[in-house]
Every structure is written in C-alpha cells, then in structure tokens.
Design a protein around this nucleic acid. Structure first.
Length: 203
DNA sequence: ATTTAGATCCTCT
DNA sequence: GAGGATCTAAATG
C-alpha cells in the first residue's frame, strides 16, 4: 500500500487533517510486529496564529523544535505527567503547524495493542491511548514518516470509496478552552461511520 | 449516564 | 512554581 509522500504533508494543515481520516497509521515494533490503526479523528493546529498551538506567536523551544521541520515528520510530546501525543508536522520548513492524531481504529496487531493497554477494551480512542497501544513515544519525535518504524499509508482499494466520500464531522478542539478565539475554531475532524466496514469495530 | 478528583512530570516563565 | 492538545476509577444522580 502506498505510503504518503512528503508532498502530502507539505500543504494546508486543515486540509491535511481532513484527508488523514481513513489513512493507515503503521507502527513496526522493535521486535518486528506490525501494528496498524485506521485514523478516525484528527485536530489541526495552525502554528503562530493559533493560540492553542505550541508554536503560537512563533514560540521556539527545545520541545517545539520539530514542528519547524518540513511536513512529514512525527512530533511526539509528553503531557500531563503520563501521556504521549502523536502529531504529524505539516507545511514547509519553518512553518510550525501540525495535526494531532486523536484516535485510530485498530485493525492489525490488535492483541498486542490490547496487552499494551493493560487488557482494557478501549484501545485507541484518544491521543494518549493510541500512543500507548501502538508504542509511540518521544523516542520517535522527529522521525520522518516515510519509512519504518512508523509511517502512514493509503488504505486498500476497498476503502477508497470511503476516502473519496470523506464523510466526517467537525467541531471545536478538545482541551483548549484557554485559547481565546481559537478555542471555538472547528479544527477537530472525526469520521462519522466506521472506516473499516470489512472488519467490524466493537459495536 | 455524567461528574469529579487524582495521578504525575515535563516544559516554560 | 504553575499548568497542561489526558486518562481512569470512583462517586454521584
């Protein structure tokens, strides 16, 4: 299946956030096992003009440095003392914008993901959960998403119609009440129906 | 079903 | 020293 090329990411951030819905997030563990999740929820973070974004106003610190890389790199940060969040850097070098991947629907390596989630049923329905389930940590911060051990690819032909349909809903982003005007911006995108109609999701 | 509080630590001021 | 792009279990209605 075709891995997304850098040009996919080096475009308008909001558009990338929408078009990532339905794509396959692939993680190959150090042991070689392959974990795959279909992206079902994203949020766009619009850089220097977006109060909710880590790089608002051009803030540039050791943490946000990777957001200044060209689109197509992973931006993984640590939050609330215990969770990692996985983002995809967008736009060209020096334009620090990104898309937060908030949820995936597990489709391969599901048992491994369940174990990583401590046996719980809810595997990847939140940004911290999906990182735990797929073994995504800050060690992958700055990783180019074009190759192993972490990349994003187009789904199988069977799901292309769903991609074309792009049935999604949008709304305000989660947890950004502090961001003034930007808190109301509708930059959160979620697939309406299960993406993977050929492998039913938990009811 | 919805709300609340606690866990826990990195990052920036 | 404060607070956060979260999650969970426990309490409450």
């Amino acid at each position: 299946m075709a891995r997304l090329k850098p040009t996919f990411y080096r475009r308008d951030t909001e558009r990338v956030a929408r078009e990532l819905l339905g794509m396959r997030l692939v993680r190959v563990l150090p042991g070689g096992e392959k974990l795959v999740g279909l992206i079902t929820e994203t949020e766009a973070y619009l850089g220097v003009r977006d109060r909710a974004c880590h790089t608002f106003g051009g803030r540039r610190t050791p943490r946000t440095e990777t957001m200044y890389l060209p689109g197509g790199h992973a931006y993984v940060y640590f939050i609330y003392g215990m969770h990692e969040c996985f983002n995809v850097v967008t736009e060209k070098r020096g334009v620090p914008e990104a898309v937060l991947v908030r949820a995936v629907e597990p489709v391969e390596g599901v048992e491994e993901m369940r174990q990583r989630r401590g046996g719980r049923a809810d595997l990847a329905s939140g940004p911290g959960k999906l990182c735990q389930a797929m073994g995504i940590t800050r060690a992958l911060n700055g990783h180019p998403l074009a190759h192993a051990p972490l990349w994003i690819e187009e789904p199988r032909a069977q799901n292309l119609d769903l991609l074309r349909g792009r049935k999604f809903v949008s709304g305000p982003r989660v947890g950004v009440d502090y961001a003034g005007e930007a808190a109301a911006w509708e930059l959160r995108f979620m697939l309406k129906a299960p993406v993977n109609r050929f492998s039913p999701s938990p009811r």
